[in-house]
């Protein structure tokens, strides 16, 4: 419990820092506000990139871009995975077979190539990226939920409740939600972290929303800059988005793990 609080606090601090950068920091994240490639200073905390745009402002807006993509993806995956998993586990029979096939299909395709093609096909808006990543994130959730629902269905008290004529929604609300929802929530949190990573990978390949100041895009721009290796520009241009990305994924991962073990202990 203590660990959960600690990690959440760290995450909160990080968000506050970036929220400040987004809302009160005087530099714009889209327009040039200084000379090209200025080193960090009081005015530009983390310096500027090749177009003279402030890096701290970009990293800050990148945080919320990444986080919102991660959360939206997780929510979508949570809904699809949860619904399909419960349906399959509860209904069994043909529904189960179909869902199982879909789960296996999405687990077995090589994800990145499909994402590359789909990203290029559907266009590079944030919404499409969310859909694409969610499409490849729901399957593990559904698998877990399906197994859990099945075992619940077979367990005594659900059968008993059913024989008393309990309606599906009621059954779900009272019995299953208590067992399944926490599991779903933790999986969704894990998806958030993974979605952030995947979005940045796609952005690095130039397949994410080109207008968003995403971290992946910043990294791609920096590494493509000619002569970057023999200047020290990368220390303030490359490292901030890289560290921000590492830090936020790791914190999310730690939080997921702490919650997982907390829940297991409680059981």
């Amino acid at each position: 419990m203590k660990r959960i609080v600690l990690i959440s606090l760290a995450l909160l601090l990080l968000s506050l820092l970036f929220a400040w950068g987004l809302l009160f920091y005087p530099m714009d994240s889209r327009l040039p506000s200084g000379a090209s490639l200025e080193a960090p200073s009081g005015e530009h905390w983390l310096g500027t990139d090749n177009l003279g745009i402030d890096i701290f402002a970009q990293v800050s807006s990148g945080f919320f871009h990444s986080l919102s993509i991660g959360l939206a993806t997780a929510l979508t995956a949570f809904l699809i995975g949860g619904a399909l998993g419960v349906a399959a586990g509860y209904a069994g029979g043909r529904t189960d077979l179909l869902v199982e096939f879909l789960i296996n299909l999405f687990l077995s395709v090589p994800q990145l190539p499909i994402m590359i093609v789909a990203g290029a096909f559907f266009g590079q808006s944030s919404l499409n990226i969310i859909c694409i990543i969610a499409a490849f994130s729901w399957a593990p959730i559904a698998k877990q939920v399906r197994a859990r629902t099945m075992s619940l269905r077979k367990s005594g008290y659900l059968v008993l409740a059913k024989s008393y004529g309990g309606r599906l929604w009621y059954l779900f609300k009272t019995h299953m939600s208590r067992d399944i929802l926490p599991l779903l929530a933790i999986s969704a949190l894990a998806v958030t972290g993974r979605a952030i990573v995947q979005e940045s990978s796609l952005a690095f390949l130039g397949l994410s929303d080109p207008l968003a100041k995403s971290w992946g895009l910043m990294i791609a721009r920096c590494t493509a800059f000619k002569g970057i290796y023999f200047t020290n520009f990368w220390t303030w241009w490359l490292l901030p988005p890289v560290l921000a990305l590492v830090l936020s994924t790791l914190l999310l991962r730690l939080l997921t793990r702490a919650l997982e073990s907390y829940w297991l202990e409680k059981e």
């Binding site: 990294i219 290796y229 990368w234 890289v242 990305l245 994924t249 790791l250 730690l254």
Partner: peptide, 22 residues
């Protein structure tokens, strides 16, 4: 290791590129 396993491949690659290869 559980932290390392969460990092994106390309990021580790870039870090190696800048911190080691260069």
């Amino acid at each position: 290791l559980s932290l390392l396993g969460e990092l994106p491949h390309f990021l580790v690659g870039i870090l190696l590129l800048f911190l080691v290869a260069a």
